[in-house]
Design a protein around this nucleic acid. Sequence first.
DNA 1: AATAACCTAGCACGGATGTGCTAGAAAGAG
DNA 2: CTCTTTCTAGCACATCCGTGCTAGGTTATT
Lengths: 197, 197
Amino acid sequence: MPKVVDPEARRREVAEAVFRVVRRHGLDQASLRNVAAEAGLAIGSVRHYFADHDELLRFALEELTDRLERRVLAHVARARSATTRDERVRAVEDLLGELLPLDPDRRDESEIWLAFTTAARTRSTLRPAARRLHEGMRVLVGKVLAESGVPDAGVETERLTSLLDGLAVNGVLHPDLTTPDVMRAVLRRHLASLVDG
Amino acid sequence: MPKVVDPEARRREVAEAVFRVVRRHGLDQASLRNVAAEAGLAIGSVRHYFADHDELLRFALEELTDRLERRVLAHVARARSATTRDERVRAVEDLLGELLPLDPDRRDESEIWLAFTTAARTRSTLRPAARRLHEGMRVLVGKVLAESGVPDAGVETERLTSLLDGLAVNGVLHPDLTTPDVMRAVLRRHLASLVDG
DNA sequence: AATAACCTAGCACGGATGTGCTAGAAAGAG
DNA sequence: CTCTTTCTAGCACATCCGTGCTAGGTTATT
């Protein structure tokens, strides 16, 4: 028998390499060769774990989705257990802040999210995964608003979803203008305007 | 002397070809060969008007900026001449709506904008032009808010700018969910919440 | 120690890309 | 008609890409 290697762990390692390449040089540059080099593997090794270049990118996007989902779900539990209204508002703020590039880790994730999401427009094999990610975020925002008793959930869900996406985009593309402090202030203002009516 | 050809007009024609390719297949596919084929020219002809592949893309982005600017400026004049408050609100709505993919033409423009803007993150030669485009939009939004007497212009400018960008992104990437009607409703709601306080 | 299974490495092919050059076509000026 | 300048077309080269294959290495079990 061969050297025992957890194949799923390997796949995740390769996905990490994809993320680093995408972050530094863009999704175009996430070729098998570049990713293999970044992962410290031979191109043949990468292809042993992924049948296809497409499958590699698809897996990376799903990996990103999983990670985001896990992080957000932890906050959901915390938000539900909030007692005072102030505590609850703060919990919602933190929860939605997980979707913004507020610190280096989340900034990395947002950069990767933006690259994959926009690429999915013309790369049809990425569309289903990108779609699931978007819908997940959308229903999350919808639930948060509904549970907070905000009326007119349809329009407000779209408004908050698009605001968060726009903040993430500008936080990634123009970090000197859309700084973490600015993003937090905008999010706080928006939430306040929702509860005040 | 040769066949007289207005070189600027030719450059703009080629830029149009770039737009069509980007819209259909993404910025990655806007190679000299693909663009030349789309424009019905030989690759050598395209290179006669553009020294570089970089220069071609840069020119296309600047062309997009010019076009957008021209369209928006027309609305600015109209908004300034509004008399009643109702008329003014509607003018502002139309003005900002020019930045959203509300009809096929603007949808095309938004798709191209998104492709170039996000590509500028890793393609350094596109950054200056993308930056100017973003700042132009930002000061426009700032002026609109200031002239409408909205307080706290800093945060509100960022909030509305990011909302518009987010709507454009989702209008392009998820047109079945973020439909023109939804975008209009969101924009209207946001503007209303600003003037009511 | 021998075997069999898994993993790694890499060659080879066809295709695409940007760019440097060169040859020729088109058409107003003399 | 002829010259001269502008424009068009396209070849050639080095580089990178995804993928089909194959050969070699590594190691737990027998």
